[in-house]
């Protein structure tokens, strides 16, 4: 299947405080929602900083929107949210909208206000309350304002760094709906690239997954392909010793063992009393991250 890429990264390297981001090649498929999964400190935010243009100290090439070179267009078409110092602390929610209009030509103030109401950040215009400054908002509210500010723009790619982390379960579900609607409205032209360290919350909106560990990409693929590549296995205690040598990730419990096995190694479990099932993306991610962490420790 020949899928177009909305973003291509080649030979990307960035050194930062003893950490090295080293990505020989990365392609984000166009028209899909891609999840960048990794534990804390894997380099997800560092990669997003580089792609968003908020960090310039790196080597390598980044190709946006199939060869677009004009910096202004690229920045207008990318909607980025981060986990760090995103807004000025003394800005009010309305000021964020005013500043958005100054910074981005495609910022729709009316849409921004509507999103703030939809996300329950502020009430309808008829019920005016004194606005809090950004610094006085909770992490969840601040993320909602960030999301409102990017969804209020006419973009082609959303770059969302840990958008679900500070949100409550209801809002996470809402976020997933917003992402699905964004991609659907784009009719194949819009893409979402988000990072998370807990894919379970965003699995139902993930089409393509990239797993990162210690600054490197260790696994990637469409979710359906990954679910064919890996198999969840459960077995009896008696087979634990032999299974631990075969399984990609292995864990013993009071009932026996469970883990993830590569589909190509399934035949090595012949003769053992095991049950197999399709793993979730969360199970695959944890297994892959555990596997690569143990190799490097």
């Amino acid at each position: 299947m020949n899928i177009e890429s909305i973003l291509t990264v080649n030979n990307l390297k960035k050194k930062f405080k003893g950490f090295v981001l080293d990505i020989p090649e990365l392609r984000i498929p166009k028209g899909f929602s891609t999840a960048l999964i990794g534990e804390n400190g894997a380099g997800k935010s560092t990669l997003f900083h580089v792609i968003s243009g908020t960090r310039l100290d790196f080597t390598g090439e980044i190709d946006y929107f199939q060869g677009e070179k004009e910096e202004k267009k690229i920045r207008e078409w990318v909607g980025y949210t981060s986990t760090g110092g995103y807004f000025m602390p003394n800005w009010s929610i309305s000021q964020v909208g005013n500043v958005g209009s100054l910074l981005f030509d495609n910022f729709d103030k009316e849409r921004y206000q509507a999103l703030l109401e939809e996300l329950a950040v502020k009430g309808p215009e008829g019920k005016k309350k004194k606005e809090k400054s950004i610094s006085k908002l909770s992490d969840g509210m601040r993320m909602k304002v960030m999301l409102a500010s990017v969804f209020a723009r006419d973009t082609k790619m959303l770059l969302l760094d840990e958008p679900a982390s500070p949100l409550d379960p209801l809002m996470r579900d809402k976020l997933c709906s917003m992402i699905r609607e964004y991609i659907h409205q784009g009719a194949g032209e819009k893409s979402v690239f988000f990072s998370t360290h807990n894919i379970a919350d965003m699995e139902n909106v993930t089409d393509y997954a990239i797993i990162m560990e210690k600054g490197q990409i260790v696994e990637q693929g469409f979710v359906e392909e990954l679910k064919e590549k890996y198999v969840a296995v459960k077995g009896e205690s008696g087979d634990a010793g032999k299974a631990s040598q075969i399984l990609f990730s292995f864990q013993e419990n009071s009932f026996g063992f469970e883990g993830i096995c590569m589909a190509k190694d399934l035949d090595k479990l012949a003769g053992m009393d095991v049950a197999t099932e399709t793993p979730s993306l969360s199970q695959i991610s944890v297994a892959v991250m555990k596997h690569y962490t143990s190799l490097r420790s």
């Binding site: 968003s52 243009g53 908020t54 920045r75 990318v78 980025y80 981060s82 760090g84 110092g85 995103y86 807004f87 000025m88 964020v96 500043v99 958005g100 910074l103 981005f104 500010s149």
Partner: peptide
């Protein structure tokens, strides 16, 4: 380092 401004 105000990333909202830096991204533009």
């Amino acid at each position: 380092r105000i990333e909202y401004m830096m991204a533009s």
